[in-house]
């Protein structure tokens, strides 16, 4: 075999290996979803969704956890959206080049790498203890808001950056102030990107388990929360609780709950991707 034949062979071998590796991750994902559907799908019925938790696996439902997740979703969105987008606007449109902004930027990059469980410890000491919020929904959502803030800020900046400066120039040349330009031109033109980032960040938040456990979300909550100051549990914690039990029936329950959780996560991701595509298609500069 000549040298070039050998090279050709290696080249083709790697090509096959590359396809195999790419498919490996996806096949694992498929196995995971198949296994969960197989185990949990038959368990899902209306009772499973509306029942309160129970010690008996067959009677147990996810109602309190689902409501907890819905509450967390809304509260986190309400807190993280204005702060994150505001901070993103500040860094992209106002703070550029200043030392303070540079420092903020490094800080945000660092925060994005802090493990989520550390945010749990922060929330436990500050929101639960110092602010005396206890293991409440509010303490949980404040903690998650801080956790996703770096993601919201970074994606907001990306979206704002994508707006061509010619649009901003045109606006200020007409006598618009900086904020008028941002409010009337830059933000509307980047809304798709901003929303995509926010939705993805929140979908990450509702999949989070560890920080909420640390903050003191409970494994067992008898009733669905009715105010931000109530104790709560969420879907991932409910799943964790069921996974930790030895009986097979609880494993079935957790698989069923995972289906619901994945449905919510994938739906949010789908909406985010849809928004992004729509936004990219609509605006061609």
């Amino acid at each position: 075999m000549t040298n070039s034949q050998k090279n050709k062979l290696i080249d083709n071998a790697f090509k096959i290996f590359g396809v195999a590796c790419t498919l490996f991750g996806l096949i694992i994902l498929a196995i995971l979803i198949y296994d969960i559907l197989k185990t949990g799908l038959t368990r899902i019925d209306w009772d499973f969704i509306t029942n309160l938790p129970s010690r008996r696996a067959q009677k147990a439902g996810i109602y309190t956890a689902l409501m907890g997740t819905v509450w967390i979703l809304f509260l986190t969105a309400i807190i993280a959206f204005p702060i994150g987008v505001g901070a993103g606007i500040y860094l992209e449109e106002y703070g550029k080049k200043s030392k303070w902004a540079n420092f903020l930027e490094i800080n945000i990059a660092n925060l994005a790498g802090v493990p989520s469980i550390i945010y749990g410890l922060l929330g436990l000491e500050i929101f639960v203890r110092a602010f005396n919020l206890g293991g409440s929904l509010l303490a949980g959502s404040l903690t998650l808001s801080l956790l996703i803030l770096p993601i919201v800020i970074v994606s907001t900046r990306e979206a704002l950056k994508a707006v061509p400066s010619s649009i901003k120039d045109a606006s200020v040349a007409l006598g618009a102030s900086k904020w008028q330009t941002i409010w009337n031109q830059t933000l509307p033109a980047s809304v798709g990107g901003v929303l995509t980032g926010v939705i993805l960040a929140i979908s990450r938040a509702i999949g989070e388990t560890a920080p909420l456990i640390v903050v003191g979300a409970l494994a067992y909550v008898p009733f669905a929360p009715s105010s931000p100051m109530d104790e709560f549990t969420v879907m991932p914690i409910q799943i964790f609780n069921w996974v930790s039990r030895p009986q097979h029936e609880f494993a079935v329950n957790s698989a069923a709950a995972i289906i619901i959780l994945l449905l919510i996560t994938f739906m949010m991701n789908g909406v985010a991707v849809y928004y992004r595509n729509k936004w990219q298609k609509k605006i061609k500069w």
């Binding site: 061509p164 010619s166 649009i167 120039d169 045109a170 606006s171 200020v172 040349a173 007409l174 006598g175 618009a176 102030s177 008028q180 009337n184 031109q185 509307p188 033109a189 609509k282 605006i283």
Partner: peptide
């Protein structure tokens, strides 16, 4: 800038309606 308007090298309409584009300066 209300007294001194500017037209740029490349056309840079806002991604809005034709009407909104022209009305923008008045609205702000």
């Amino acid at each position: 800038r209300k007294e001194v308007g500017m037209v740029f090298q490349k056309p840079n309409p806002f991604p809005k309606t034709i009407f909104e584009n022209v009305a923008y300066g008045l609205k702000i």
